[in-house]
């Protein structure tokens, strides 16, 4: 009888304990500063003051700079071609990408490649450089950015551009955010200090939609 009672207790503790222990020991989806915080920075006032050395003290007029208005070719910044996150075993070629017909960011079809949002900042320039890739694909299996969900604060990231120059980054934030709540204007921001934003999918898979509910978001700041 005692054995049977012990069996009840043991069975119930396994039944309840297993999921509870899993829940408790599971890594939290977020790490480091919040994504918004990592991306927001005091924006320097873009409006120049009305006073300038070229203007008389009593003047209300700002100094004027003048440029040639003839059409000129602009030299494009070097594009990123390679992404590495050694701590996560991520090593991937990078392709410039734009937007799809439906307005979403275009991603390389190949899950082993990562897309750079070419309309946004290049690595190391002001604002957010956005790199994103598929976490998986029905035919191709797991994508190269699948380990991104395990990124830890302090992980180093390296981006190499077409000229062979490398920029080094350090993860300051990781989170899993519902797609409909994604702070897109901040993630794709073009002003403020340089940030590297890595994006893929995550969270629950919604079979009805054939898509994930959330995005995994990793924000990194430049290494000194």
């Amino acid at each position: 009888m005692r054995r049977a009672a012990a069996g009840v207790v043991l069975g119930l503790s396994v039944a309840v304990g297993a999921p509870v222990a899993w829940q408790v020991t599971e890594e939290p989806v977020a790490a480091g500063a919040s994504v918004e915080r990592a991306l927001s920075a005091p924006v320097p006032p873009s409006v120049p003051s009305g006073e300038g050395p070229a203007v008389a003290p009593a003047s209300t007029l700002p100094p004027v700079t003048v440029r040639d208005a003839a059409p000129a070719a602009t030299a494009p910044a070097p594009v990123p071609v390679r992404l590495a996150v050694p701590a996560l075993g991520i090593e991937a070629p990078v392709d410039p990408v734009g937007v799809r017909g439906d307005g979403q960011m275009a991603l390389p079809d190949d899950v082993d490649r990562v897309g750079w949002y070419r309309f946004g900042p290049a690595p190391g320039t002001a604002g957010s450089t956005v790199l994103a890739g598929h976490v998986d694909d029905r035919d191709q299996g797991l994508g190269v950015l699948a380990p991104l969900r395990d990124a830890a604060v302090g992980d180093r990231i390296e981006v190499i551009d077409a000229a062979g120059a490398a920029t080094g980054w350090r993860v300051v934030s990781r989170d899993v955010i519902e797609k409909r709540a994604l702070p897109l204007d901040q993630l794709f921001g073009r002003a403020g200090p340089p940030r590297l934003v890595l994006l893929t999918c995550g969270g629950p898979f919604l079979p009805d939609l054939g898509a994930y509910r959330d995005n995994v978001v990793v924000v990194a700041e430049p290494l000194p």
Partner: peptide, 13 residues
């Protein structure tokens, strides 16, 4: 900004 980032179709993770 783009309207979103579609990043997976298989549910493997």
């Amino acid at each position: 900004s783009p309207s979103g980032v579609p990043g997976g179709t298989a549910g493997l993770v």
